[in-house]
C-alpha cells in the first residue's frame, strides 16, 4: 500500500503534522489499514529527503508541520492518473496455501477450503453489519463517510470474490476426484468433502 502517496495527497490539502496525518488517513479509510505514527514519521522523513515535502516550522504546541512542495504536487497528480499495476499481483497467501494443499500429500483440502470459507464469510458478515450502520448514519453525509463506505464496499467485493473462488476450487477438486475415480486411479469415496460439524445449535 502506498502510504507515501496517501500522505502526500493529504498534505496537498493543507500542511499537517504527523498525528494529524494519521488521524486524517484513518478518518477516510476507516481502521481497515491502521497506520502507526512511527510509520508516518519515517515516511515524512523520506518525503523530505526526496524533496516532495518540507518541514515548515512548528505550530504553537511544538508539532513539526510538513508542507508539500511543487515536486510533491506533481507526484500526487501522477499517482492519481496512473492505474495501480496488476502485472505483479501482491502475494496471495490463500492461493499459495491451496496450491500447496493440493500438492502436498495427506492434506485434507476440503477442510482447508471450508474453514477458510467460514472465516471469510464471518468477515463478510462484519463488513455488511458495518455497511448497514454506515447507511444508517448517512444523514450526516460527509465526504469522509462516503470514503469509508467505499472502502467497506471494496472489502465486501474482495471477500465475496474469495468465497466464490473457494466454491470454484471445491467444485473443481470434486470433479477431478470423480474423474480420477473413473480412471481407476483413485476411489470415488476419496472425494474431498469437509468433515461434518460436531454439533450445531
Amino acid at each position: 500500500m502506498s502510504v507515501k502517496h496517501a500522505l502526500l495527497a493529504l498534505l496537498e490539502q493543507q500542511p499537517m503534522y504527523g498525528y494529524q496525518l494519521r488521524a486524517e488517513f484513518e478518518r477516510r479509510t476507516g481502521t481497515a489499514w491502521p497506520l502507526n505514527v512511527g510509520q508516518v514519521y519515517t515516511t515524512l522523513t523520506r518525503l523530505e529527503r526526496d524533496g516532495l515535502a518540507v518541514a515548515d516550522g512548528e505550530d504553537d504546541e511544538g508539532h513539526v508541520v510538513y508542507r508539500i512542495t511543487d515536486g510533491g504536487r506533481d507526484e500526487v497528480a501522477t499517482w492519481f492518473t496512473t492505474p495501480v499495476a496488476r502485472t505483479q499481483p501482491p502475494r496471495d497467501e490463500l492461493a499459495i496455501k491451496l496450491a500447496l494443499a493440493v500438492t502436498v500429500p495427506g492434506v485434507d483440502v476440503g477442510t482447508v477450503i471450508q474453514q477458510q470459507r467460514s472465516a471469510t464469510m464471518a468477515s463478510l458478515q462484519d463488513y455488511t453489519r458495518l455497511k448497514r450502520r454506515a447507511a444508517e448514519a448517512a444523514d450526516r453525509a460527509e465526504r469522509a463517510d462516503l470514503a469509508w463506505s467505499l472502502v467497506l464496499d471494496s472489502l465486501v467485493f474482495g471477500a465475496e470474490a474469495e468465497i466464490r473462488w473457494l466454491d470454484h476450487c471445491e467444485a473443481r477438486l470434486r470433479r477431478a476426484a470423480v474423474e480420477q475415480g473413473r480412471e481407476g486411479a483413485r476411489p470415488v469415496e476419496d472425494v474431498p468433502v469437509p468433515r461434518p460439524a460436531r454439533g450445531s445449535r
Binding site: 476507516g30 481497515a32 491502521p34 464471518a122
Partner: peptide, 13 residues
C-alpha cells in the same frame, strides 16, 4: 451441516 460461522468479529473494524 458441515460448518457454521461463529460470532467472531473483525476486531479493528
Amino acid at each position: 451441516v458441515v460448518d457454521e460461522t461463529g460470532t467472531d468479529r473483525v476486531e479493528g473494524l
